[in-house]
């Protein structure tokens, strides 16, 4: 039990939540607009790589962050174009993005930085300690606080603004939205690209938020855990965050219990098992947006 009262466990739970919650909320934006997105993993990798690369080239981690996020947005825009304009199969496209991003980042790492990895003098984003909140909020990446703000802002945006309502409308019933005079394609582009930028921010956190380097496939499947968190969180920003918190806790607990007789591999299964149970309606039913994954041809 002493494990659970150790503030280190809770600090690392929060630290592990960030790279899950950001892509999970990103996926929520995309799927609420009606575009199935399993490409979070790949977009995160792009964000992580270009975050480091631009941080090194410009000497400013903040420029690295902005440009890394923009590169993620660019990849998401290409994905969106094929999914929306070309009506391509969104799951297959997502796979293509993941394979492409994994290959491209590995390839660029080796051609631009050689086989020794990214330069050790790459600057990283600052760590911030909130005074008075104890060791849990001590020495956390600044992106943790950004992430917490994003949870609140995206909830407000999706559920309390006109644009948010419109994005959700094209994900539920694009024909009705179109009839009401909304531009379905444009709203879907917004959802996918904003979502991609949030996923890329999750990647930036991994590379220059908590480290200052990039490694091949450093996201290590987090994009897929984020997908699980998005579903378990019922396609809402707050739900995605809470699910990410739970999954982050499972990961942190696995690390804390290492060498204490509990297999970290078995603990790692928790997110996936919970997601299947949630989809099967055994742990709270998760239903995707009605038009999720269905391409739309505008009426003339």
């Amino acid at each position: 039990m002493s494990v659970l009262t150790n503030p280190q466990l809770w600090a690392s739970t929060l630290a592990m939540t960030v790279p899950l919650a950001l892509p999970a909320i990103g996926g929520t934006f995309s799927e609420r607009a009606g575009v199935v997105n399993i490409a979070m993993e790949g977009i995160m990798l792009i964000g992580a790589f270009f975050g480091v690369a631009f941080s090194y080239w410009t000497g400013s981690p903040w420029l690295g962050l902005v440009l890394g996020v923009l590169m993620g947005g660019l990849l998401a825009a290409i994905f969106a174009w094929a999914a929306i304009r070309l009506a391509a199969d969104q799951v297959v496209l997502g796979m293509a993005v993941n394979i492409f991003a994994s290959g491209l980042t590995a390839f660029l790492l080796n051609t631009l930085f050689g086989y020794g990895g990214t330069p050790p003098e790459t600057p990283s984003l600052p760590f911030v300690s909130l005074p008075g909140l104890g060791p849990v909020f001590a020495h956390q990446s600044v992106l943790l606080y950004v992430m917490l703000a994003i949870v609140v802002i995206s909830h407000w945006f999706l559920f309390h603004t006109r644009l948010g309502l419109r994005i959700r409308a094209v994900g539920e019933n694009p024909l009705a939205a179109d009839t009401a005079g909304l531009n379905v394609w444009r709203l879907r582009y917004i959802g996918v690209i904003v979502g991609g930028m949030l996923s890329a921010l999750g990647g930036v956190y991994l590379s220059i938020g908590i480290l200052n380097s990039f490694d091949v496939d450093m996201t290590n499947g987090r994009g897929f855990i984020a997908l699980a968190a998005m579903i378990f969180g019922k396609w809402t920003p707050v739900g995605s965050f809470l699910a990410s918190l739970l999954f982050g806790f499972a990961t942190a607990l696995g690390v804390a219990l290492q060498g204490q007789g509990v297999s970290p591999d078995l603990l790692s299964m928790i997110p996936y098992v919970l997601t299947i149970l949630a989809l099967a309606g055994l742990v709270g039913r998760s239903t995707p947006p009605a038009a999720d994954g269905i391409p739309y041809t505008p009426i003339r």
Binding site: V92, A96, V97, I99, F100, G103, L104, A106, F107, V216
Partner: peptide
């Protein structure tokens, strides 16, 4: 890893 880039593009 260029072959992965190619695979991604093919898909």
């Amino acid at each position: 890893s260029l072959t992965d880039v190619l695979t991604g593009l093919i898909v």
